[in-house]
Nucleic acid binder design. Structure first.
Lengths: 249, 249
DNA sequence: AAGTGGTCTAGACCACTAA
DNA sequence: TAGTGGTCTAGACCACTTA
C-alpha cells in the first residue's frame, strides 16, 4: 500500500518557501517521526503530484533532495523506498564547538594566543599567502566540563576577519566566519595520531608520549580562497570523529 | 567573456548516455584540464542550451551535478563559476585496499582468521543479528611494501557472501561485496586513537602503548541492512585519513 | 503487460545582482 | 534596467522491474 495517502501532505502556494522544499520537509518530518516507516514504498510520483496539485518535476525535485540526503532510495521499475537504517547526518563540515554544544557538553574556550605572525612555509602554502607575510595566529584550549579536550591552533589570512578574543571565547571560529559573511564551501582534512610532545602533554594534562588524535584542515570559501588552516590535537579518551557518509551513486 | 564558447561542446543524441551526463562529463573534463580556468564564468544556461540544441532543464541538470560535486558555484544574478580551489574528491566510502593501490603502494593482505563465530553483544548490535548467532569473522593484516600498515577485524552477517581466503588476499572486502551484487549505501564511522595493547603492538611491529589510529565502521546496503562491521587499527606513521568534504548548501 | 522511475522538451514567471 | 539563476508547468517517450 501507499503510505503517503494517510499523510496529511499539503503545500501553501502563497508561501515564499519553494513548493518542492515544502514537500521535502514534510516527507522528511514523516520519516523522522516514523509515520513513514523504513522500507515502505512511497506512492508513485505522478499520483503524488496529482494529489498535491503539483507537476511531476516539482515532486521529483523534492524526492531527489531526500535521496541526496540518503533518506530515500529510488529503484527503476519498483518505486521509491524509505531507507531502513539509521541515517542521520551525512558528514558535515562540523565545528568542534557546535559538536560539543549539541552533545550538551557546555564547551568553554580559553584563548591563549591571538596575534599576527609571519607565515611559516606550511601555513603560507596552505593559505596561499607569501611566506613570511602577515597571518593571524590563534591558539585555543577547548574544555568540556572543565576538562581539556583539545588544543586548537589556527592560522587565518590577514584582513579576513576581526578576531576578537572575547568573541572567540564565547563561540566557535566557524560561527564567527559565517556571521562575517563568509560562505564556507569545502575543506581538506587529514586525521591521524601521534604521541604527545612534552608541550602538548602539559597543555592537555596528559603524559608525554600519550596517544593524541590529530587533525589538520584547510577550509575554503566559495570563491576558492583558503580562509583557515587548522592544526588540532585531541585527547582520544575524550573525543573521536563520528560521522556518517554516503556512497556516491 | 564566456569561456565555454571556445569549448568544443557537443552531444550525441544517438548515444544511450543521457544528454545531461554527456554535457557534465565534458565540462568536468574541461575543468580538470584547465581549459575552464578557476574563477571563470560559464555562459548563461539559456545561451548554452541554445548552442547545444538542448532544453534549459537538461543543461541545468548537467550543471547541478557539478555543483553537487563542488566543482561549480552558482550565484543568482551573477552566473555560474568554476570553483577556485583544489577540489578533488568529496569524501567517499573508501576501501583501504583501493586507497593504497591508487597511491601505488601495492597492497598485500594476509588473512589470519576466516571463520564463523557466535556474535558478541557489540557485533550483534552493529549487524542487527541475535547475540550468540553465527557471524563471519575475518582478521587481516594489510601490508604495503612488505611493512604492516593496519590490522583489520571485520564481522559480516551470515549467508551474505562467500568469504574465500584467496579472494580476500587478492582484493579488498568492498570489491568482493560489490561484485556479489551488494549495493553499498552508507556507513557510520568513528575515528579515534589509543595506545596499542601488547597483542596489537606485536601484530603491527610497534611497541606496547604506541599510539594507534583506530576506526570502527558499520556499512549498510541500500535496503538498510548492515553488511559489515569493522574494527581497524592503523599505524599512524604509515597511514592517516585524508578527505575533502563539502558544506551542505 | 502494467507500472515504475529516468530523461527530456519548450515554454513561463520570479528574485536577486550589478551597472 | 538588464541579465542571471531559481522555480514551476504539462506534457512526452524510454528503460527497467515485476508479475
Amino acid at each position: 500500500m501507499d503510505p503517503t495517502v494517510s499523510l496529511d501532505l499539503r503545500v501553501d502556494r502563497s508561501s515564499p518557501v519553494p513548493l518542492y522544499f515544502q514537500l521535502s520537509q514534510q516527507l522528511e518530518a514523516a520519516i523522522e517521526h516514523g509515520t513513514l516507516t523504513p522500507g515502505s514504498l512511497l506512492g508513485n510520483e505522478i499520483e503524488l503530484a496529482a494529489r498535491l496539485g503539483l507537476s511531476r518535476p516539482t515532486v521529483r525535485q523534492a524526492i531527489q533532495s531526500l535521496v541526496d540526503k540518503g533518506l530515500l532510495v529510488r529503484r527503476r521499475g519498483v518505486g521509491t523506498q524509505v531507507v531502513h537504517s539509521q541515517v542521520k547526518r551525512p558528514l558535515e563540515l562540523s565545528s568542534l564547538y557546535d559538536d560539543l554544544e549539541a552533545a550538551g557538553q557546555r564547551p568553554a574556550t580559553k584563548v591563549l594566543v591571538n596575534t599576527v605572525v609571519p607565515a611559516s612555509a606550511a601555513v603560507a602554502a596552505a593559505l596561499g599567502v607569501a611566506e613570511g607575510g602577515d597571518v593571524h595566529r590563534v591558539e585555543r584550549l577547548r574544555l568540556a566540563h572543565g576538562e581539556p579536550m583539545a588544543y586548537l591552533i589556527n592560522h587565518l589570512p590577514p584582513g579576513l576577519l576581526d578576531l576578537d578574543t572575547d568573541q572567540l571565547e564565547a563561540t566557535g571560529l566557524y560561527r564567527l566566519m559565517r556571521s562575517a559573511g563568509i560562505t564556507l564551501h569545502s575543506a581538506r582534512q587529514s586525521i591521524g595520531a601521534r604521541g604527545a610532545t612534552a608541550a602538548e602533554a602539559e597543555r592537555l594534562t596528559e603524559a608525554e608520549g600519550a596517544p593524541l588524535l590529530t587533525m589538520q584542515r584547510t577550509t575554503f570559501d566559495d570563491t576558492g580562497r583558503a580562509v583557515e588552516f587548522g592544526d588540532h590535537t585531541y585527547r582520544p579518551g575524550r573525543y573521536s570523529f563520528e560521522f556518517q557518509l554516503l556512497v556516491r551513486p
